[in-house]
Computed example of a mutant assay.
Amino acid sequence: MMAIIRDTYEMDPYSNSLFLFCGKRCDRLKALHFEKDGFVLLYKRLDNGRFQWPRNASEVRNLTRQEYRWLCEGLSIDQPKAIKSVTNKQF
Rank of each mutant, 00 (worst) to 15 (best):
D7F: 02
C26N: 15
V60A: 01
C22V: 15
S15F: 01
A3P: 02
F39N: 06
P13A: 11
L32P: 04
R61N: 08
R69Q: 15
L32G: 03
S76P: 00
F21R: 06
D7A: 04
A82P: 02
L41C: 10
Y68S: 08
F21S: 07
D47C: 11
Y43I: 09
Y43Q: 09
L18F: 13
V40K: 07
R69S: 14
C26T: 15
G49W: 14
R55F: 05
V40H: 05
W70C: 11
V60M: 05
Y14K: 14
F34D: 00
Q52R: 03
I83Y: 05
R28T: 11
R25A: 14
D7G: 02
S17I: 01
I4Q: 11
Y9M: 02
C22Y: 15
G74T: 10
P80T: 09
D7E: 13
D47S: 15
N56P: 00
R28P: 00
C22L: 15
D12V: 05
A31E: 05
S17Q: 12
I4V: 13
I4C: 12
C22R: 15
L46H: 07
S15H: 05
L18P: 10
S17L: 08
L71V: 07
D47F: 09
G38C: 04
L20C: 03
P13N: 13
A31D: 06
K24C: 08
I5M: 00
N62I: 11
Q66D: 13
W53S: 04
N48G: 09
E67G: 09
L29G: 07
A31P: 06
S15C: 02
R25T: 14
Q52V: 10
P80A: 08
E67V: 10
V40Q: 08
L29F: 13
K24P: 06
S15W: 01
R6A: 14
K44P: 03
F21T: 12
Y43V: 04
N62D: 14
A57H: 08
R6V: 02
I77F: 11
E67W: 08
F39L: 03
Y43L: 11
R25N: 13
L46R: 11
I83E: 15
L29N: 11
G23T: 07
W70R: 13
F51L: 07
D37C: 09
D12Y: 04
F34H: 12
L46M: 04
E59C: 02
C26Y: 15
L63C: 09
L42G: 14
N62H: 13
Y9R: 00
A57S: 12
L20E: 02
E67M: 11
Q79R: 01
D7W: 01
E10A: 06
R25P: 03
A31F: 10
L32C: 11
Q66N: 08
L18W: 11
S15L: 00
D47R: 15
